[in-house]
Lab assay of single mutants.
Amino acid sequence: MQGVVKVNSALNMRSGPGSNYGVIGTLRNNDKVEIIKEVDGAYEIRFNGKVGYASKSYITIVN
């Protein structure tokens, strides 16, 4: 499943599905991501070869 990031500035990509996990990357508006699955209000995603988590509130599914 594919998604597009929709933010005003940037969205943190984290090592786990919550803000208490470390930041492993930054997503920008209109970045395209692969959605692997939904976990606790976040999506597990793949972006630029990395797998991490981002809030589903800022990712629009575009299948």
Score class of each variant (00 low, 15 high):
residue 55 S to F: 08
residue 50 K to A: 08
residue 23 V to L: 06
residue 40 D to R: 10
residue 52 G to F: 04
residue 42 A to I: 11
residue 7 V to M: 04
residue 2 Q to P: 09
residue 35 I to Q: 00
residue 20 N to D: 12
residue 3 G to Q: 02
residue 2 Q to L: 14
residue 6 K to Y: 08
residue 36 I to K: 02
residue 7 V to R: 06
residue 19 S to M: 13
residue 63 N to V: 13
residue 56 K to R: 07
residue 45 I to N: 00
residue 13 M to Q: 02
residue 44 E to D: 00
residue 47 F to N: 02
residue 35 I to S: 00
residue 49 G to T: 04
residue 15 S to V: 07
residue 31 D to L: 04
residue 63 N to I: 12
residue 26 T to M: 11
residue 34 E to C: 14
residue 7 V to A: 12
residue 23 V to W: 05
residue 30 N to Y: 07
residue 47 F to C: 04
residue 22 G to M: 14
residue 6 K to W: 05
residue 62 V to L: 13
residue 54 A to Y: 02
residue 57 S to W: 13
residue 31 D to N: 05
residue 1 M to L: 13
residue 40 D to C: 14
residue 35 I to H: 01
residue 39 V to Q: 06
residue 44 E to K: 13
residue 49 G to V: 02
residue 17 P to I: 08
residue 8 N to R: 14
residue 18 G to I: 02
residue 29 N to R: 08
residue 7 V to G: 10
residue 36 I to F: 07
residue 54 A to F: 03
residue 16 G to P: 02
residue 22 G to N: 14
residue 51 V to H: 09
residue 42 A to S: 14
residue 43 Y to C: 02
residue 23 V to E: 04
residue 2 Q to M: 15
residue 33 V to I: 06
residue 15 S to P: 03
residue 60 T to K: 13
residue 4 V to S: 04
residue 4 V to D: 02
residue 56 K to Q: 06
residue 40 D to L: 11
residue 18 G to V: 02
residue 35 I to R: 00
residue 13 M to E: 01
residue 5 V to I: 07
residue 11 L to S: 04
residue 62 V to A: 08
residue 27 L to G: 00
residue 60 T to D: 11
residue 47 F to P: 00
residue 10 A to L: 14
residue 43 Y to F: 09
residue 29 N to Y: 09
residue 49 G to N: 09
residue 60 T to V: 15
residue 51 V to A: 06
residue 27 L to F: 02
residue 4 V to Y: 07
residue 6 K to F: 07
residue 40 D to S: 10
residue 41 G to W: 12
residue 5 V to N: 02
residue 13 M to W: 06
residue 30 N to P: 02
residue 15 S to M: 08
residue 60 T to I: 15
residue 63 N to P: 13
residue 16 G to N: 06
residue 7 V to N: 07
residue 21 Y to I: 03
residue 58 Y to F: 13
residue 54 A to P: 01
residue 35 I to Y: 02
residue 48 N to H: 10
residue 57 S to F: 14
residue 16 G to A: 07
residue 20 N to G: 12
residue 47 F to S: 04
residue 2 Q to Y: 15
residue 14 R to G: 03
residue 45 I to S: 00
residue 39 V to I: 12
residue 18 G to H: 07
residue 12 N to A: 15
residue 50 K to C: 09
residue 16 G to E: 05
residue 3 G to M: 02
residue 62 V to H: 07
residue 25 G to T: 10
residue 23 V to I: 13
residue 25 G to V: 09
residue 10 A to C: 15
residue 61 I to M: 08
residue 10 A to W: 15
residue 24 I to Q: 03
residue 39 V to F: 09
residue 48 N to M: 12
residue 62 V to Q: 09
residue 57 S to E: 15
residue 58 Y to A: 11
residue 25 G to H: 09
residue 32 K to Q: 11
residue 47 F to V: 08
residue 24 I to F: 02
residue 40 D to I: 06
residue 34 E to Y: 12
residue 1 M to H: 10
residue 51 V to L: 11
residue 19 S to T: 12
residue 38 E to P: 03
residue 61 I to E: 04
residue 8 N to E: 13
residue 31 D to H: 03
residue 44 E to H: 10
residue 20 N to M: 10
residue 11 L to K: 10
residue 20 N to P: 05
residue 9 S to F: 14
residue 40 D to K: 10
residue 26 T to F: 10
residue 54 A to W: 02
residue 20 N to W: 13
residue 28 R to T: 08
residue 25 G to A: 15
residue 38 E to F: 05
residue 37 K to G: 15
residue 31 D to W: 05
residue 5 V to T: 02
residue 46 R to V: 12
residue 51 V to R: 09
residue 14 R to Y: 15
residue 50 K to F: 08
residue 23 V to D: 03
residue 47 F to A: 07
residue 24 I to T: 06
residue 19 S to D: 14
residue 63 N to Y: 11
residue 31 D to K: 02
residue 60 T to H: 14
residue 10 A to M: 14
residue 59 I to P: 00
residue 41 G to K: 06
residue 50 K to D: 06
residue 33 V to L: 04
residue 51 V to M: 09
residue 36 I to P: 00
residue 43 Y to N: 00
residue 30 N to H: 09
residue 6 K to C: 14
residue 41 G to R: 05
residue 16 G to C: 07
residue 51 V to N: 06
residue 2 Q to W: 15
residue 18 G to R: 05
residue 22 G to S: 14
residue 28 R to N: 11
residue 17 P to Y: 05
residue 32 K to R: 13
residue 16 G to S: 08
residue 4 V to F: 08
residue 1 M to C: 15
residue 23 V to M: 04
residue 39 V to M: 09
residue 61 I to R: 06
residue 26 T to L: 13
residue 2 Q to C: 15
residue 29 N to S: 07
residue 32 K to Y: 12
residue 39 V to W: 10
residue 62 V to R: 05
residue 57 S to L: 14
residue 16 G to F: 03
residue 1 M to Q: 11
residue 26 T to G: 03
residue 25 G to K: 04
residue 57 S to K: 15
residue 58 Y to W: 08
residue 59 I to Q: 00
residue 59 I to M: 02
residue 14 R to I: 05
residue 6 K to L: 08
residue 31 D to T: 07
residue 50 K to T: 10
residue 12 N to S: 12
residue 14 R to D: 03
residue 49 G to Q: 05
residue 54 A to K: 01
residue 6 K to I: 10
residue 56 K to C: 07
residue 10 A to P: 13
residue 29 N to W: 07
residue 10 A to G: 11
residue 11 L to T: 10
residue 43 Y to S: 00
residue 23 V to S: 07
residue 13 M to F: 11
residue 24 I to D: 01
residue 4 V to K: 06
residue 32 K to M: 14
residue 33 V to S: 01
residue 38 E to N: 03
residue 52 G to N: 01
residue 2 Q to S: 11
residue 49 G to P: 00
residue 46 R to C: 13
residue 15 S to T: 09
residue 15 S to D: 11
residue 50 K to N: 08
residue 47 F to R: 03
residue 51 V to F: 08
residue 20 N to K: 12
residue 28 R to A: 09
residue 63 N to G: 13
residue 42 A to H: 15
